[in-house]
Amino acid sequence: MELTPFAPLYERTSPWAAVYLDTSAGDAAAWEQTGAGGEGGAGFRARGIGRELARQGADEATCRAVVDAADSCPHTTQPAGRVIFASSGKVAFDLPLTMPPPGGWSATWSRLPHVAPLLELVPDEPDCLVAHVDRTGADFELRTAAGSGPAGGGPGGRWPPRHGSTGPGHWSQRHFHLNEGNTWEENARAVAEEIQDFVVDTGAGLVVLAGGEPERHAVHDHLPPPLRTVVVEAPYGDSGPYGDPPPYGDRAAGARTPRLDADVRAARQDYLRRRSIEELSRFESACSPARGHAGAAEGVPALVEAAREHRIERLLLAPDAEDAHRALWAGPEPHQLALRRGDAAHLGDAEPFAARADDVLLRAAAVGGAEGVWVGARAHGHPEGGLGALLRWTF
């Protein structure tokens, strides 16, 4: 996860409120059951968040700003959530979450913004190109973390919108009409070439082929080997939601079926698991005895030293990391961090403050242009204490 966009959070020296909310439709139903005195459940929970922040020492203006923001968060039909960062009576960030936070909500008041949950709740899901194929043509849809949209234009203006449906919510926004005079083998090759072009144009990291088994296999076989590694095949459903005449009726069957949606979600989750395993494998290799831990750091003392020297390239955080809750001492500058209060004074700040280890290290990583990586793929191979780093350079 790119941490640089959160660097402005560290420009303020005042404490921060960090609130993570579940805004899914299922959680909204639970809100209504917790309402009291005839008041809406959402407002009831928002005020509970305000009371929790006040209990932790937050000022009244910031509590009020957070309550107003939490009370106005929209509900969605998909599992999702929002994170709110507020300080000095103002909301600085109000962002959507890809995954809902556990427990419905959490609220933290601390000197540094509590950004660590973002690594799990906003994973770097790849943009996904869904190609609905049959023997008459191909429809393309680009699915991102923000939703579905047009997959982009192709060369020669071959992508007319269908039936005037040009809004960003329509999956079938771009179509590739095959030459009926060609053999299916020729058409499959043409679809594969268009998929390659779309991957280049959109930067999609994942391709889902939806359609009948012979058509999927034929297109897959014509893709270059490097691209096949990010291709997943998914059969489409039995009936289409649009009731369109040919040639779109058959392909439309793969549009908004729960089965296809589940296949896309599973493909994305598998992508994240594979990436997590790859990052852990890199970490294990860098920690090998032959290299003497030169390319990686694990354990809070080693991470503190690497953060001071701006050597962290990727900060790894594992689930239930024991060291994440450990208190470190920090100063106003990201490189001012230490294991003990006396050490922090030697780093140039007369008034160091205590903060969670994960928040202190993430501040140094964000300001230093490093990435944060959630490594929840497997229990073994995690860094010592749940925190580790791949380093930019070694001595």
Rank of each mutant, 00 (worst) to 15 (best):
L119A: 07
G104Q: 09
T98Q: 07
V122I: 10
R111K: 14
G104T: 05
P113Y: 06
R111Q: 15
T98I: 09
C128E: 05
E120N: 13
P126Y: 13
T98C: 12
E125N: 00
S110Y: 02
V115N: 12
P126F: 11
C128R: 02
W109P: 09
R111S: 15
P123G: 12
G104I: 12
D127F: 02
P101G: 12
D127C: 04
L121P: 07
A107K: 10
P100D: 06
R111V: 12
L112S: 04
R111W: 14
S110H: 12
M99C: 13
G103R: 11
L118T: 00
P102T: 15
E120M: 07
P117S: 11
S106V: 01
V122R: 08
T108I: 05
W109G: 07
V115H: 06
L112F: 13
S110Q: 04
L112Q: 03
W105P: 00
W109C: 07
P101V: 10
D124T: 02
M99L: 15
V122M: 15
C128S: 12
L119E: 04
P100C: 05
A116M: 11
H114A: 02
S106E: 08
T108F: 08
E120V: 03
W105F: 13
L121M: 14
G103H: 14
M99S: 06
E120S: 09
G103A: 09
P117C: 08
G103P: 04
D124Y: 01
P113L: 06
S106P: 01
L119F: 05
V115I: 15
L118V: 01
E120D: 07
D124M: 01
